[in-house]
Amino acid sequence: MLLIHCPYCDETLPEPEFAYAGEAHIARPADPMALTDEEWRDFLFIRSNPRGTHYERWRHVHGCGRFFNAIRDTVSDKFAMTYRAGEPRPNLDALKEAAE
């Protein structure tokens, strides 16, 4: 059972209150009909699936109800940080340097 920081509640809370919601920063195209079949396929199905740092979405479904984003390591399962939906993708290296 992970502990997850909800950026809206500003609290670190147990995993059962949350639901995973797939990779982050995949915006629905503004005009899907303008996309080629290949572009639409990539939007629908192609995901990065990295070993290590993963930008992903969670929802505090049994809490404030908000979707938010997280950076998590897929090997250690550890969260590096969480941030609100709509905020730009943080630069993890810059964050690490700042921390050091």
Partner: peptide, 10 residues
Amino acid sequence: GARTVFDGVQ
């Protein structure tokens, strides 16, 4: 107060 989960129930 808080919304949370009790034994799997919101």
